[in-house]
């Protein structure tokens, strides 16, 4: 596989993760489901996953960049698995957190996404040719366009998520089961 195709796959990974984060926005702002602290932590791990892919597009392919993505995905998988375990024994008062999508809650889908990300990166790492000719990487105009697009998407999502979290949680830690935006109630922490 040539480097251009691998760049497209890296970019596709960023687009898929951005779509997941945008889907979370749909639940937050359209369906008015406030994200729990563990949900926000999983969102953060998605940013870590995208960061390694972004570095690949910006600076050239490196196993270290893929490593950063895998570390974030492992952390995110651990957090989503923890949330699954919290709700794994259904009770009359506990049907899981939030609205299920296609029969699974968002944190279950997050675990699927993190594990799929790790699998995809493992498959990408099999193509060892991408780690050669690194010095020519930034000379290819296609890479620069993809890197700029990826930056725009990631930066915008990180900033808006930060802003939304600030309104929801203030400057302190988030409540375990949020039911409003704290800042709108005049609470800063």
């Amino acid at each position: 596989m040539n480097n251009q195709n691998i760049a497209y796959i890296n970019f596709l990974g960023i687009i898929i993760v951005s779509a997941i984060l945008s889907g979370a926005y749909y639940f937050q702002f359209v369906m008015h489901e406030y994200p729990c602290p563990l949900c926000l932590l999983q969102r953060l791990c998605f940013f870590g996953l995208m960061f390694g892919l972004f570095l690949n597009l910006r600076f050239g392919f490196s196993s270290a960049h893929y490593g950063l993505s895998i570390l974030s995905a492992l952390l995110g998988a651990g957090i989503s698995y923890r949330q699954i375990l919290l709700h794994v024994c259904p009770s009359p008062t506990d049907h899981g957190f939030g609205t299920p999508v296609l029969g699974m809650h968002l944190y279950s889908w997050a675990l699927v996404a993190f594990l799929s990300g790790i699998l995809a990166i493992a498959l990408l790492l099999l193509s060892s040719g991408q780690f050669e000719k690194k010095e020519n990487h930034q000379l290819t105009p296609g890479f620069k366009v993809l890197a700029n697009l990826a930056f725009g998407i990631c930066f915008l999502l990180a900033l808006t998520n930060g802003l939304a979290t600030f309104f929801e949680c203030g400057i302190g830690f988030c409540p375990d089961d949020p039911d409003s935006y704290m800042l709108f109630n005049g609470e800063w922490w």
Partner: peptide, 25 residues
Amino acid sequence: MMTLPFLTFALAFWLGWKNRRKPAI
């Protein structure tokens, strides 16, 4: 406190875009 990592991630992406790999990492 929960907002902070979102902002540091945003800054990391920005530094990466500005070609500053080490500070971004």
